[in-house]
Design a protein around this nucleic acid. Structure first.
Length: 750
DNA sequence: GAGCACTGC
């Protein structure tokens, strides 16, 4: 690895005496990309807004254990700060700088860019780690990862000893994972200080280290402090305080500063072009019609440049595409043509790529997008943004545990993010289809996800991290008490928590290890005693992947016919198992017969098999990935993987023992009643049991649209509930009644 | 006879 050593040029003495960016002049290396490319990169780095602040930033990190960095779009904070810290010695002695991102793609692209800038190989000194993919090595010093991945690491190493600095990037997005990391890292900082203080007080060298178990890390900790023991007494020879840098793109830093005990905030200017904002004078009665008219108006009156229209969902995008095509046909003669490119997450990736293709000369591209274009991907060429000010967002009702999607107004921060999309390459314009008064009434920021989701997973992870008092956890925005209590109860019923509210061992401990919804993790663990763990493995993978079946509206009948060959009269779970069994036999099986597995060929076969069977290829691939990963965990725990073969009754009984909380019973009037909440529910038309009127079913999802629907069902014998979940159901009454639970122990951990 | 914003382990 010759390239590794060359980066040590960052650590030379020159840096200290100069205000300039600590970027070494381009140097030729083996496997070099070519001198001109290196010079180009160097030139780009030098002119970034953050470059002039390099020295100051490093000093701020040195002087503050927690630092808030507000960096506007285009400031270069994400790629540069990690390199500055590397150059300043924060990676010496085996320490790492960890940088979290909310999205997988971002972790990969940023790591790739930084490795290129540093002239090192990816997965060498610079690496990334995301689910299903670890591109790091023992040499890795700058580690980019998804926020969820760092959370997983904390389970194995609660003090995060490998890290000298953690940078939480895109903190303003407030993902559940980032929010949990906030509280967690505060705790780690405190505990790492305590470990140090211990040493300083009694001076006995081994005392502090005994809190930090594994032997091999002791040397590393020592090396840490030798590397940069700038602050603190000479006696502090143990774990360095963890430096935390919170990076955000929104200007409002106050919330972060307050939460991090008055942490200092620094601002870095961005490099955005001006965007002219236009609002309507009166509220629009029909925002879709307004969006349509505005799009055509911009096309007729404005200079060249592509248009980005934000819409709420697939259906709306499809409608708009149709309307726009119709109206475009009646444009005055000589008007340039338009090219419509829709994009939303569920769109097959080949069609997604169309938004990135430049329109032919003289043609204007109109992109119809969901909020996928707000942050997740950047489309080049956009000069005009049309923003109706609405978004489809998940709403969660903790009382009854129901999720639904609703169209709601965006926040001011989201409005700014949307308009910013017009100023990436040059001055732009944003047309907001709402009045200034309406804008002023919008919320400043979107309600953090942690306040609007099911917390079962979060609570389980916190318990696994040794945080027993979840209600007292230092959340930046605390979820409602009701939501926390609900998930504590849920975990207790699943057996993950003891009567005292502690994580049960081994059940709770094992459940927390799985990258699955707690109820799926439980099902996985229960399944080996029912001798159907292969089938449950497939089930939890397929359920985690969601929407395996692909039903385009125009081919509704064909899709339903294709599904027939997988359909099981027992329900959706076994139907999903049939899909995977068929795939394995018809695609992977035939590959093996032909000899060595050729991945390209397999991929091609998967695609054609999926399209002829109306299966969503992306979802199936994801299910296969999850299946492989979960299989690894199951085997790692020493659990046996057994198939029940054709004895699927055994499997249905296992589903009952696992998903007993979600049982529904047919009433005299033919409607269904969810047993644990008493709600009236209906079988979702996407289920294979729709119209079959089974007496008793289990379900995995409860969604509210026009009415309350249950999805992913299996028919069961109602007597199994009392037999397999006696702790929850009693047989005394004709109608099964859920038993009340005592909450005392759960809420006040001993 | 219905509808699935977007991420993540």
């Amino acid at each position: 690895m010759p390239s590794m050593a060359s980066t040590s040029t960052f650590e030379n003495g020159k840096r200290k005496s100069s205000d300039a960016l600590p970027v070494p002049r381009p140097k030729l290396m083996k496997n070099d990309l070519g001198g001109s490319r290196r010079r180009e990169i160097w030139e780009q780095r030098r002119t970034l807004p953050i470059a002039s602040a390099a020295k100051k930033l490093v000093k701020e990190v040195e002087n503050n254990d927690t630092l808030i960095v507000i960096g506007e779009t285009g400031s270069g904070k994400t790629t540069q700060l990690p390199q500055f810290l590397h150059a300043a010695g924060y990676c010496k002695g085996g320490s790492m700088v960890g940088i979290t991102q909310p999205r997988r793609v971002a972790a990969i692209t940023v790591a790739t860019r930084v490795s290129e800038e540093m002239g090192v190989q990816l997965s060498g000194e610079v690496g990334y780690s995301i689910r299903f993919e670890d591109a790091t090595s023992p040499q890795t010093r700058l580690k980019f990862m998804t926020d969820g991945m760092l959370l997983r690491e904390a389970l194995l190493d609660p003090l995060l000893r490998k890290y000298s600095v953690i940078i939480l990037d895109e903190a303003h997005e407030r993902t559940v994972h980032t929010d949990v990391l906030f509280g967690l890292l505060k705790g780690v900082q405190k505990r790492r200080r305590e470990v140090r203080a211990d040493v300083e007080v009694d001076g006995k060298t081994e005392q502090g280290a005994s809190m930090v178990k594994p032997l091999e890390n002791r040397t590393q900790i020592k090396l840490d402090s030798e590397a940069h023991g700038s602050n603190g007494s000479s006696k502090s020879r143990r774990l360095k305080v963890l430096k935390v840098v919170v990076m955000s793109a929104t200007l409002d830093a106050q919330g972060f500063c307050e939460y991090f005990d008055g942490a200092k905030a620094v601002y870095i200017q961005g490099r955005q072009h001006p965007v002219q904002i236009m609002n309507t004078y009166t509220p629009e009665a029909d925002y879709l019609d307004a969006a349509l008219i505005t799009t055509l108006q911009v096309h007729l009156e404005e200079a060249p440049g592509d248009i980005l229209v934000f819409l709420t969902g697939q259906e709306e995008i499809e409608n708009m595409e149709r309307l726009l095509t119709e109206r475009a046909a009646f444009l005055p003669e000589g008007t340039p043509k338009i090219l419509i490119a829709p994009i939303y997450a569920a769109l097959p990736s080949e069609q997604q790529m169309r938004v990135f293709e430049p329109a032919p000369t003289g043609v204007r591209k109109v992109i119809l997008a969901t909020n996928i274009a707000e942050t997740s991907l950047t489309i080049p060429g956009i000069r005009y943004v049309i923003d109706p000010g609405l978004v489809k967002a998940k709403v969660y009702n903790p009382r009854i545990g129901v999720e639904s999607l609703a169209v709601v107004p965006i926040s001011k921060a989201q409005a700014a993010q949307r308009s910013g999309r017009a100023g990436r390459e040059g001055p732009g314009k944003c047309f907001r289809l709402y009045t200034v008064e309406t804008f002023n009434k919008l919320e400043e920021a979107t309600v953090p996800e942690i306040k609007r989701c099911n917390l079962a997973n979060v609570v389980l992870q916190l318990k696994a991290l040794g945080i027993d008092d979840v209600l007292g956890f230092d959340f930046m925005d605390k979820p409602s008490r009701a939501a926390i209590v609900k998930s504590l109860e849920h975990l207790y019923i699943l057996g993950a928590l003891t009567d005292e509210g502690k994580l049960s061992d081994p059940l709770g401990v094992q459940m927390a290890r799985f990258p699955l919804e707690p109820v799926y993790a439980k099902a996985m663990l229960v399944s080996s005693s029912f001798r159907c763990s292969e089938e449950m493995l497939t089930t939890v993978a397929m359920l985690s992947a969601e929407s395996i079946f692909f039903t385009p509206r125009e081919k509704f009948k064909e899709a339903n016919a294709a599904r027939q060959r997988f359909t099981s009269p027992e329900g959706d779970h076994i139907t999903l198992i049939n899909v995977l069994r068929a795939y394995t036999q018809e695609v992977e099986g035939s590959q093996r017969i032909e000899g060595e597995v050729n991945h390209k060929k397999l991929e091609k076969k998967l695609r054609s098999w999926c399209s002829s069977n109306f299966i969503n290829g992306r979802s199936l691939r994801r299910a296969l990935d999850i299946r492989r990963q979960v299989r690894g965990y199951v085997e790692g725990m020493g659990l046996e993987l057994i198939s029940c073969g054709d004895d699927l009754n055994q499997f249905r009984r296992c589903l009952t023992a696992s998903f007993f909380l979600n049982a529904a019973h047919k009433q005299a009037d033919g409607k269904y009643r969810a047993l644990s909440t008493g709600q009236t529910v209906a079988i979702h038309p996407s289920s294979v049991l729709f119209g079959k009127k089974p007496d008793c079913v289990l379900f995995n999802e409860l969604v509210r649209t026009n009415q309350q629907y249950i999805r992913s069902l299996t028919r069961i014998d109602s007597l199994w509930l009392a037999e397999l979940a006696p702790q929850y159901y009693s047989t005394r009454d004709l109608v099964y009644a859920a038993r009340p639970l005592s909450q005392e122990g759960l809420l006040k951990p001993h």
